[in-house]
Design a protein around this nucleic acid. Structure first.
Lengths: 305, 305
DNA sequence: GAGGATGTATAGTTAATCACTATTGCTAAC
DNA sequence: GTTAGCAATAGTGATTAACTATACATCCTC
């Protein structure tokens, strides 16, 4: 029993004439005749009473035809689903973002994606890189925004932008007079740091390796966020290093804080998109990339593809 | 897209492994692989993300799989319908009976058919032979009970029983002393007859052809029934000829009426079943025949097949 | 980083199926 | 009896679907 057979069956039930039904199906009369006979044999049921005068459907035949129509209808739905699903910008996209980007990127990203792909709602998860990677590989996420380096089997990455680091200090701090800050100076500063698991923490520690072994004045704030740290800096609890998108004052920004860049060469992190190499909706990824680059993130430099 | 393809699709969605899915479908891995690829090409949609680690279904793939399961379910219903419809004794049987048999046969027939084929309800129509024949050919009826001769193209008949004619007269009638009645005597009797269209009327007239031309004492009662005529005979309005099943007194019968057979050779009618030669439920016809022969119809003689 | 293990895709071949044309067979109507 | 209409069958060719064998890709291990 094939869908073609069922189409022949329904056509014959409608036309009550093998020749006409065959014509409607664009096949020859014997083709349809044989197919119906095959169906009857397979089902071990007489579907039609054939006579010279006309073709009559049996009671059981009528019931089976009704069911066949239902099958064909449902099968047609598959094609419709496929047509709808062919557009990579249709259907939800599961996006993961690391904690140190989400709060600064998402408010800009979401409306831009919505404008570019109105029928692609974003399902967003913020998490650590490791968790995002796991979800991405499991298929719980489709695309993630992470900092490089990021190497995972089966995952491809695409750099999107570079983002310099900044030193954040309370307004009136002694370093405020300097236009730029040397990284080495941080070694003995009361540096506020994110907890383990945040990639940004490690990147900051790389900027001033001395701190690591030094067990100096740094304080690790487990379970905290960049925003919390910023508030703590404002209250004079210490200084910190932030990515520029989180640090640079927006118009009408915080007057309790002072931001200074590092001495050249500025330390920076490279932010990238990552997805399974097998992920088919590359068009959706392009939209995400464009929306990120279209977002007004302070201090970031796009990375050409 | 075939039902087989959909089965492969569903299996792969369940197993998430080409080899295992193929095994479950009793085909080789390449067979399933090619089929899925063909489906994806046809629908122009990526249904699965394949990687060395595992097989992931895409969002659109999951939706299509759900629809495919629906299709397969509905298709399975066809087989179930066929299985149920394979029994000729399942499903209603549309039975036609001529007016001069119905009232005497049906009260016996219906419970017997119900006992022999409980899931074959009878849809019964009483009518003239010509109307029954038309309905039978149109397919509005499946089997009819008529008197022979009955010849129609595409229709087969099977004699079931012979039924002698009887003379019915009011109790106390002059002929009551005779054990049998010669047919010729009816020529000048006040014979009550059914209206035109009733085959039994013509059969009675054949018994005594003289009446036809004679325009004697006969009265034709249009739109009447044998039962009405019987009542009229009881009131002394005349005499009549009835088939034995309608005439012979049942235990506790009507004491106002006297029934006499004809002189030998008794005139009789032959009752038969008729159906379209293409009608597939011969088993149902056998049940009807057996139920008729099992009915206690007075005076009838079964006709062996 | 080379080699092995796992798993999917491809190549090449064979068998089955499907659809065609031509023809037969059947029924009913003229 | 003949003819017309229509479905069934025969026979053939093309397409499809299945197989086995093998290539290819990826990841993991040593």
């Amino acid at each position: 029993m094939t869908l073609t057979d069922l189409r022949y069956l329904v056509a014959l039930a409608r036309e009550r004439h093998f020749g006409h039904a065959a014509e409607r199906c664009n096949v020859s009369q014997p083709t349809l005749s044989v197919a119906i006979k095959k169906l009857e044999d397979e089902l071990a049921v007489t579907l039609f009473e054939r006579s010279a005068a006309d073709v009559k459907i049996t009671d059981i035949g009528a019931r089976i035809v009704a069911q066949a129509e239902k099958v064909l209808l449902e099968a047609g739905q598959i094609k419709e689903l496929a047509t709808a699903g062919r557009d990579p910008l249709s259907g939800p996209l599961k996006l993961g973002v690391i904690y140190t980007i989400g709060p600064y990127l998402l408010p800009h990203l979401i409306p831009r994606v919505h404008a570019a792909a109105p029928s692609m709602p974003l399902l967003i998860q913020e998490n650590y890189t490791a968790r995002l990677a796991e979800s991405l590989k499991r298929g719980d996420l489709d695309v993630i925004v992470v900092a490089l380096p990021f190497e995972e089997p089966g995952i491809v990455t695409q750099a999107v932008y570079d983002e310099p680091f900044r030193v954040l200090m309370p307004a009136g701090h002694a370093w405020e007079d300097d236009d730029t800050i040397p990284a080495a100076r941080l070694a003995d500063a009361p540096l506020l740091l994110l907890g383990a698991g945040n990639c940004f923490r490690d990147q900051v520690l790389e900027v001033c390796p001395l701190c690591r072994g030094g067990e100096g004045l740094q304080r690790t704030l487990e379970g905290s966020s960049l925003e919390t740290i910023r508030h703590m800096v404002a209250t004079g609890a210490g200084i910190t290093v932030l990515p520029s998108s989180a640090a640079d004052p927006l118009p009408g920004g915080n007057s309790l804080l002072t931001v200074r860049p590092f001495d050249a060469p500025e330390p920076f992190r490279r932010i990238a998109l990552a997805w399974r190499v097998t992920y088919p909706r590359s068009g959706a990824i392009d939209v995400i990339r464009a929306a990120i680059l279209g977002s007004p993130l302070q201090g970031v430099r796009p990375v050409s593809r």
